[in-house]
Design a protein around this nucleic acid. Structure first.
Lengths: 203, 203, 203, 203
DNA sequence: CATGAATGAGATTTCATTCAT
DNA sequence: AATGAATGAAATCTCATTCAT
C-alpha cells in the first residue's frame, strides 16, 4: 500500500513506539527482544526496521518522547497562579507518576533510561538532555519561589534547584521499588519541611 | 573435610565480586559478558562458576553488598553528636557519592540496580531490601530531627522521610548523568531550604 | 495493445541494466542489494520487477551482454588487413580492458561472472556461452596465423587456441588485482615470446 | 577438554578450514552459510568462532593457504635440471589444476578469490599477495629462460612474465568453465607457440 | 580444585520479493 | 504502468553455561 500519507507513516511510527514502550516497561530494554516488539506491534521485522534503523534508535526515540508529557505537566503547574507551594507541586508530580506507573506505564522507563545513560555513550547524550530539560523547569520554579518571597532574594537558585529536584526521583524510586508512598504522604512530608504558604507553619 | 580453608573460599568469592563490580560499573550488567569477568578476575570460567551458580547470582550478591558502606557512613553521621543539620548530612552523603563515582565506582551500580528491580522479580526483592534499609536510616534521622526540635512533635515521620530521602537519588543522578553538581552546592541548597541550626537563618 | 511503445520498454530495461552494471562492478553481485539498483536506476522496486523476474535474471542478462563489445573489438581487429601480430592483437585487447576497468567498468564484471559460473548451474550455461564465443574468435585468429605462415600448416589449432587465449585473462587479472601492467608492457612481452612479423626477430 | 595440546588446536583449525574449503568450492563464499560449515566440520557455532573471528577470516585463511601447494609445485618444477620447457612447465601446472578441480577441489576457490578481491578491500590485499607470489615464480622462470639462451639477453623479463603467466589462468578458466581442455592439449599448444628445446622446431 | 574448549539457543538485522493502492 | 510499504525467512555472530580432562 504505497503512496501512503504522511499521517500513515506517523501512525506506524507511533504504533511501534507504543508497542516498544509496553515491552520495555514490562521487561526492560535488554530483556525485550525485537521479536517481542514485532509481535506486540503486529508488524513484521522488515516493517519495524523501515521506521527505525536499530533497537537503540527505538530506545532513543522513546526516551526523547517519554518525558515530554511530564515536563508539560510541570510547566503548566509552576506557571499557574498563584504559585503552587512545593507541597502542591510535588503532589501534582507524584500523582502523574502514580497514574503512569502501571505494569506498562512509561514512568517505568525512567530508571531504565538513567541506567542506560551510565553505560551507553550515545544514550547518555539524550538522557542528559531530558534530565537537563526537567531541571530547567525546577530552576524556573525556584526563581519564582524567590519572587514571591518564600526564599531570600540572594538565594543561590542553582543550589536550591540541585536540592529540591530530588523529591521527584525520590518519589519515583520509592513508588516503583518499594511501592508504598502515595502523593498525599509525599505532599505532607514536603509541607512539613517547606511550610511556605501554609496557614500556621513554623511557629 | 575441605581441602582449602574457608578463608581461601571467601577470598576467591571476593576476588570475583571485585572484578564483577568493576566490569558492571563500566559496562552495565547486560553488556558485561562473563568472559570479561573471567579476565578481570584472572580466573577461569570453571573457577567462577564454582563460586556462583550464575551471572544473576553475582549481580544479586553485588546489589546486596553495594550500599552497605554508604549505609554505614550514614549511620555514623546521623548518630554523631550534635545532630548534623540536613545540609551537613547530605554533604557527607554527596561526598561519599563523588568519591565513589569514578568510571569503576560502586555508586554507578545503584541506578542499574534500580532499573533491574523493575524488570526482574527476584532482583526486586533484594534491591527493595537495600532501599528499605537505607530509608530506615533516614527515618531514624527524621526522628532525631523531631527530638531536637527542628520539626514539630506531631510530625508525620514517615511522610517527612518519604520527602527528605529524595536528596540522595537526586544528587546521585545529577552527578552521574549531568556531572556538574558538587557536594558544596547541594549542601548550600539544602541549607537554604532547611535552615535548621544555621547561625542566622530565616530572619 | 500496449500502452507504451516497445522502445519505451527497451529503454527501461537498459536503464536497469546500466544501473545494475555500475552497482555490480562496484560491489559485486552479492553485496549489491536490489535497493541499490532501485536507487541507481531511479526506479521503484515494482518497476524493476516488471522488467526482470529476479535479481538472478538481471545478473544473467548482464553477464550475457558484458563481453559483447569486447568480442566485437576482437572481431574487428583479427579481420583487419594485414593480420595483426599477436603482440598487436593483445595490445588492442589490453587497451580495451584498461579503458573499461574503472571503478564502474564492465570489465570488473568478468571475474565475477567466472566465479558465479562455478557455483550456479544456470549461470554456468551462459557464462560458458560467452567464454566459448570469445574462444571462437581466438580460434579464428589462430587459423589465420596458420594461413599467413606464422604457424606450421599442421598446427593443432585447438591446442594453440587453448594456450594463446590465456593472454587475455592473464592481463585482466593482473590489471584488476595487482594494478600494474599496461598494454605496452604486455605487448612487448608477447612480442618477445611470439616475434612473428617483427622486423629483426629471432636471429 | 581443556588444557589441550597445541596440535589439538591446530587440528581443529584445519578441520574447520577443510570443511570450509569443501563448502566454498561447492557453493561459493556467499552462498555457503556458516551453518553449512558447522555441519560439514561437525563442530558447533561456538567452536568455529573460537578459532575464527568471522566468516571473512575463514575466507582469508583459506585464500592464504590454498595457493601454497601450487606455488610449491611450480617452484620445484622451475628449479629442476635441466630447465623445463614452457610446454613442460604448463603441463605440470595444468595437471595440478586438473587433479584439484573436482567438485570440491581447491582450485575452484581461485576464481572466487579473484572476484572477491575486486569487491572487498581487505580481501584485495591478500589475494594480491598470493597473485604476486605466484608471479614471482614466473619471473624466476623467465630469468632462467634468458640464462639458457631461449630468450635474448636483453629481454624485458617483467614484460615477458606479464604475458607468459596468462597460460595459467587461461587454463584454469577453460577447464573450470568449459571443461574440455586437458594438460596434453595445452602443452601441445604452448609447444607450438614456444618451441624452445623441441627436437625439430621452427624450421 | 581448576581449566577452557565446546555447546547451541537465541539475538539483531538484512533483503529479495510481493501486491494493494 | 508504477509505487513503495510490508513480508518473513535466513544470515551471522554472541554468550551463559557445562564438563572432560
Amino acid at each position: 500500500m504505497p503512496r501512503v500519507s504522511a499521517e500513515h507513516l506517523e501512525r506506524r511510527r507511533q504504533q511501534i513506539l507504543d508497542a516498544a514502550q509496553l515491552c520495555f516497561a514490562r521487561k526492560g530494554f535488554y530483556e525485550t527482544s525485537m521479536q517481542e516488539i514485532f509481535t506486540e506491534s503486529d508488524l513484521s521485522a522488515g516493517a519495524v526496521y523501515r521506521y527505525f534503523k536499530s533497537k537503540n534508535e527505538i530506545i532513543a526515540a522513546l526516551a526523547a518522547e517519554t518525558t515530554v508529557e511530564l515536563r508539560a505537566a510541570m510547566t503548566r503547574t509552576i506557571r499557574s497562579d498563584p504559585l503552587p507551594t512545593p507541597a502542591q507541586l510535588v503532589r501534582v508530580i507524584a500523582e502523574y507518576v502514580v497514574a503512569h506507573s502501571g505494569p506498562d506505564g512509561p514512568v517505568r522507563l525512567a530508571p531504565q533510561a538513567w541506567a542506560l545513560a551510565l553505560v551507553h555513550a550515545e544514550a547518555a547524550e539524550y538522557v542528559k538532555g531530558a534530565v537537563v530539560a526537567m531541571r530547567d523547569r525546577w530552576t524556573e520554579y525556584v526563581g519564582r519561589m524567590v519572587q514571591v518571597g518564600w526564599l531570600p532574594a540572594d538565594t543561590d537558585i542553582h543550589a536550591v534547584t540541585t536540592a529540591i529536584i530530588g523529591f521527584m526521583p525520590g518519589f519515583i524510586l520509592q513508588h516503583l521499588i518499594i511501592g508504598d508512598p502515595d502523593p498525599e504522604t509525599l505532599a505532607r512530608g514536603v509541607a512539613t519541611l517547606l511550610p511556605y504558604g501554609e496557614p500556621a507553619a513554623q511557629t
